[in-house]
Amino acid sequence: MDFNEQNKSRRKFLRNLGLAAPAVIAGSGVILEGCSSPEGGSGAKVKVLTADHKLVEVEVAGIAANKESADKSYLTKRGRKGLEGKKFVLVVDLGKCKNARKCMDKCQAVHQLRPDQHHLNVLLMKDSEHTSPYFMPKHCQHCDNPPCVKVCPVDATFKRSDGIVLIDNERCIGCRFCIAACPYTARSFNWYEPIDAEKYKDVPYDIEKNVPQKKGTVTKCTFSADCLREDKLPYCVSACPNGVYYFGNLYENAVTNGTTGETVSLSDLLAENSAYRLMEDLGTAPSVYYLPPKNRALIPDIENDNSKKI
């Protein structure tokens, strides 16, 4: 009856299972075999450079797209929120700058900038007739009261809780209000197609690196937010050969020199060298500190033009 019926169907199920199991195993075997040597190994091989720079030979048929790199949407999402427990500061020791410009080269290469565009520029300064000239690297000051962010009509440029001011090129409409508002001339505009525009056509936009550049949008220094996420020093800081830059976390009261790797107390460094910030009177509260050009190894000679042209 009812019980019998149930029993029968269970038996039927078990019998079917018994038949199905070997079939499944055999089937998966076929599939697995297909994975290990596709098409039975055609023999065509190609040389490939691996991520750790080793040349290996693999079969053409075995190559598949890297699944990790498929979804890059996180690149545009992650940039809006600051890193927790951090507030970044940069200290520039003007006494050590010899206009080597390695920081600029690295920056322009990483951010795919044209030679006339600067996220960071080394300027030759001469304040008055009788004062001595000096070189001054000038980044975005990543102000705590940023005038550029105030004027953005579309929320494209924003400040994060870790102090970094970024710009989202996918929102930017190219009005250039921020360029006009910035008292430090830290931003530049993509008037033309960026270099290698063709090459980076299909590369997804990375908000923390601000690449690939896009014609008709504003571009600016990012404090290398992509490096900071990995606890690495910014590109310019680690590229400097002369120990000009110190970078660190204000909350931790420590900054690390990009050249020597020496870590010192931020408050001591600022106090001992009577540090200053640019245009303090504007109330922009920059995150970049300058140490005066004292005890210099190189004094630029403007008349004889020994130094590179700016």
């Binding site: 606890d231 660190g248 420590a254 870590t263």
Partner: peptide
Amino acid sequence: YIKRDFGLMR
């Protein structure tokens, strides 16, 4: 040394 974000402070 004391460990800091970007290096070791002596």
